[in-house]
């Protein structure tokens, strides 16, 4: 009889741990999803600024066609990117393309002084700051989720239950990954 009670106790305890642990994984996964949505909003905002920027520069420097095409291509790549890794790569590509566009703009003082160009420049800088802020949050949530999924005992059952380690938002060859991770 005693053994039966001990058995019931153990089963109940294991069940409790399983429920608490499972709920924690769900919560952490939701946080990762929220973190990704935050980045996505800012990436979209950045992509939305591009057509205006291209039009503004074109008004002063119509013959710099190569640069316009490059920026437009980079923007399309960003919009088609499906995973955090490819999105980070595409975002990096867009940064390089925009950098080239601004370098071109250097040669046109009237363009540089125009109201709409200054405004776009400010908006783009702001969006880049916000992408990096959103990235810090997202990567912290991914770090936390991955640590949970990859530690015992979840290491064995997380994958069958549908909890797969997530990808960081970082471009290939990017060294700005969280070296110090305070994620909590």
């Amino acid at each position: 009889m005693l053994w039966l009670w001990i058995l019931i106790g153990v089963v109940a305890l294991v069940a409790l741990f399983a429920v608490v642990g499972y709920n924690r994984l769900v919560r952490l996964r939701n946080e990762v999803d929220t973190g990704w949505a935050n980045i996505d909003v800012q990436l979209q905002r950045r992509a939305d600024l591009i057509p205006n920027l291209v039009e503004t520069v074109r008004a002063y420097a119509a013959h710099e066609r190569g640069v316009f095409e490059e920026v437009t291509r980079a923007r399309a790549a960003l919009q088609q990117a499906g995973t955090p890794g490819t999105a980070a790569d595409a975002n990096e590509g867009l940064t390089i393309a925009i950098g080239r566009l601004f370098a071109v703009a250097e040669a046109y003082p009237e363009l540089k002084a125009s109201e709409s160009f200054l405004q776009l420049h400010e908006d783009l800088t702001d969006t880049e700051d916000k992408i990096s802020a959103a990235r810090r949050y997202y990567n912290a949530t991914v770090m936390r989720f991955n640590t949970a999924v990859q530690s015992i005992p979840w290491l064995l059952v997380a994958s069958p239950l549908g909890f797969h380690a997530r990808e960081f938002f970082s471009a290939r060859g990017d060294t700005a990954l969280p070296q110090v991770s305070f994620g909590y």
């Binding site: 702001d126 700051d129 916000k130 802020a133 959103a134 949050y137």
Partner: peptide
Amino acid sequence: RRLVENVSIAAG
């Protein structure tokens, strides 16, 4: 305002 927006995003 922008600075506050940025830290709020970083805070989630």
